[in-house]
Design a protein around this nucleic acid. Structure first.
Length: 264
DNA sequence: AAACAGGCCAACCGCAAAAGC
DNA sequence: AGCTTTTGCGGTTGGCCTGTT
């Protein structure tokens, strides 16, 4: 069987995700779910393969993800579970709410394996095993408060995501200072919608995400002209390689419109 | 201050299983 | 029933960061 072309050959992006891509993915999944990962990036206007989107969502963007350092109880539980289940990371993750298999796997390889080796080399196997067993936590203990150092260890990416996934503000955007609910706004989009979002000098489109905590989430999209003289703007103006799919994203997300989009 | 080494972790790859047709 | 597509999983990699020399 011929191997499927890799993402790069298909013109898809690889490597670290940008905050803008995260926003789009979170927005799309919150609105439509993820019934088909393969189709999702195209529908959402992301230049990523479905596999990459799935991984990003599961390992990083899911709202129930618990960020920050592992507690001692969690670490002991991982050791105990690994003793029982072996390298079945997804099975271990299923018993640790908010933790992903990838995260657990990383913790195991970077911390726990080494620690366990040190323990066994400095104490008898029997005492080590009983120590682990006695300290292992039950699943209900997993939700105990995290140390403050853990809770403060949150990236700006997560902050933006949190703002967009907060139940109090879901599907809300602000256009020219007026709060709107996406589900109400988009079905009625017409040319006047975009006119309202235009800046005073018609040089940019302004959209706002309420409660956002950094500039990246309060984007202003410069209007540019393509080779054919058609006007448009990029959804991610700060990205190095540019991703001109804003129009596609919003139309697909709220409209289902299949009109021809200008090429840039 | 620069070079190097090691730790860490997000993301990728390939394979297998499951689901769909 | 068999083939194709999609999803899930575990292993691995690459690049950034930090500590050490």
């Amino acid at each position: 069987m011929v191997r499927a072309p890799c993402c790069e050959k298909m013109g898809l992006k690889k490597g670290p995700w940008t905050p803008e891509e995260d926003q789009i993915l979170v927005f799309f999944i919150r609105k439509y779910g993820h019934g088909n990962w393969r189709a999702l990036p195209k529908q959402a206007g992301l230049l990523r393969c479905g596999k990459s989107c799935r991984l990003r969502w599961i390992n990083y963007l899911r709202p129930d993800i618990k960020r920050g350092n592992f507690t001692r109880e969690e670490e002991e539980a991982i050791i105990k579970l690994h003793e029982m289940l072996g390298n079945r990371w997804s099975a271990i993750a299923a018993r640790l709410p908010g933790r992903t298999d990838n995260e657990i796997k990383n913790v195991w390889h970077t911390h726990l394996k080494k620690r366990l080796k040190d323990q066994t080399s400095t104490s008898s196997p029997a005492s080590s095993a009983s120590n682990v067993a006695s300290q292992s936590a039950e699943p209900e203990n997993m939700n105990s408060p995290q140390p403050s150092s853990s809770s403060s260890d949150v990236s700006s990416v997560t902050e933006v995501t949190a703002a967009l996934t907060d139940d109090n503000h879901q599907d809300m955007i602000t256009i020219k200072g007026e709060n709107m609910e996406l589900s109400e706004t988009f079905p009625e989009i017409d040319d006047s919608f975009w006119c309202e979002a235009l800046s005073a000098d018609n040089s940019s489109i302004q959209l706002e995400f309420p409660e956002a905590t950094n500039d990246q989430a309060q984007p202003q999209f410069p209007i540019t002209e393509n080779d054919s003289g058609e006007l448009g703007f990029t959804f991610c103006p700060n990205m190095d390689d540019g991703m001109e799919f804003w129009y596609d994203l919003f139309i697909r997300a709220g409209y289902g419109d299949t009109r021809e989009l200008p090429e840039f």
